[in-house]
């Protein structure tokens, strides 16, 4: 899409542009530039949230963060959980969106139901989910007993395996955004393509799998990138459901930093971890921009 082509040639609106960008620069200056500078400074100190009596410790914080197995685990978990979300989106999310798009009865209501967990406050949904995990009277174990599958009952937060399973179930609930992308993009697919496929005798599931899935590959890309970016922003989802249990093994970068800063009051240490996470997130974002630029 061309932009600014019609502006008179050779004239620069530099000064006007600066005026138009002042509000944006205010926010960026304060909450990004100044904030990152402050992080860089604090990350080499030992200090509490009062920010007084800071002790300079050089690169110690970075060394400690980098060698903490729990930090490495939280980075890997963030990526793993992103992977689970992406798989769920490309399978369950895709299928749900396709089925809803065929215009089944009550499709607006169904659409709303599948989006609900993604749109209400995550702190709320994750808290409810956490309550459902309780071993004795939790909703999941009760349900498994009620439907005659007592073997599926778990001490959900008692061991690593079932802790991960609990997070996976939770993440599948949260595929609202991909459903939005798929239902929106499928409307732009050429009607005659599907018509001729049905005339050739292709079944509904074949059309979903062999035709629509490849046709929506740009949407897959959007879904993958947005989920990946979102995963480093995630926090509430783990903080309120498993709380990182058992023993911090399901923690993610968000909960790790939050606990270091506000739980343990190790602010310099949290700042060092923040910077490392920021670098990872910005690299992913940079990669995304490069990728989407080539498409233009």
């Amino acid at each position: 899409m061309g932009s600014g082509v019609e502006a008179r040639k050779g004239r620069s609106d530099g000064l006007v542009a600066l005026l138009f960008l002042i509000p944006l620069l205010f926010f960026y200056g304060l909450y990004y530039l100044y904030a990152f500078g402050f992080l860089a400074q604090v990350s080499r100190q030992r200090v509490s949230l009062t920010f007084v009596n800071a002790v300079n410790v050089g690169w110690d914080n970075f060394r400690l963060v980098a060698t903490d197995p729990l930090f490495r685990r939280s980075v890997l978990n963030t990526l793993l959980f992103a992977g689970i979300s992406i798989c769920a989106a490309l399978t369950v999310g895709f299928l749900l969106a396709m089925m809803i798009s065929t215009g089944v009865r009550g499709r607006k209501l169904l659409y709303g139901i599948f989006l609900l967990p993604s749109l209400i406050p995550l702190s709320l949904f994750a808290t409810v989910f956490g309550q459902m995990l309780e071993t004795k009277d939790g909703a999941f174990n009760s349900l498994f007993r009620a439907v005659g599958l007592p073997g599926l009952q778990q001490d959900w937060l008692g061991n690593t395996g079932s802790g991960y399973a609990a997070v996976a179930i939770l993440l599948v609930y949260l595929i609202g955004l991909p459903i939005m992308y798929y239902t929106s993009d499928v409307t732009s697919i050429n009607l005659s393509l599907i018509e001729s496929a049905t005339i050739d005798g292709a079944g509904t599931w074949q059309i979903f799998r062999l035709m629509l899935f490849p046709l929506l590959r740009n949407t897959h890309k959007t879904v993958i990138l947005s989920v990946l970016l979102g995963s480093f922003r995630a926090f509430d989802v783990i903080f309120f459901s498993t709380g990182g249990q058992p023993g911090g093994r399901t923690s993610i970068t968000g909960t790790y930093i939050y606990n270091a800063a506000l739980g343990n009051d190790r602010v310099g240490y949290a700042a060092a971890a923040s910077l490392i996470v920021l670098v990872i997130a910005l690299l992913i974002s940079f990669g995304q921009l490069l990728l989407t630029r080539k498409d233009r």
Partner: peptide
């Protein structure tokens, strides 16, 4: 508007799409 470095500035603005709230709490 036309100004020098517009596209570069635009992409610099977009790169912050990924900043997590937890990373700036301090």
């Amino acid at each position: 508007l036309r100004f020098r470095g517009r596209e570069l500035a635009y992409y610099l603005v977009l790169v912050f799409l990924a900043v997590p709230a937890t990373a700036v709490i301090v």
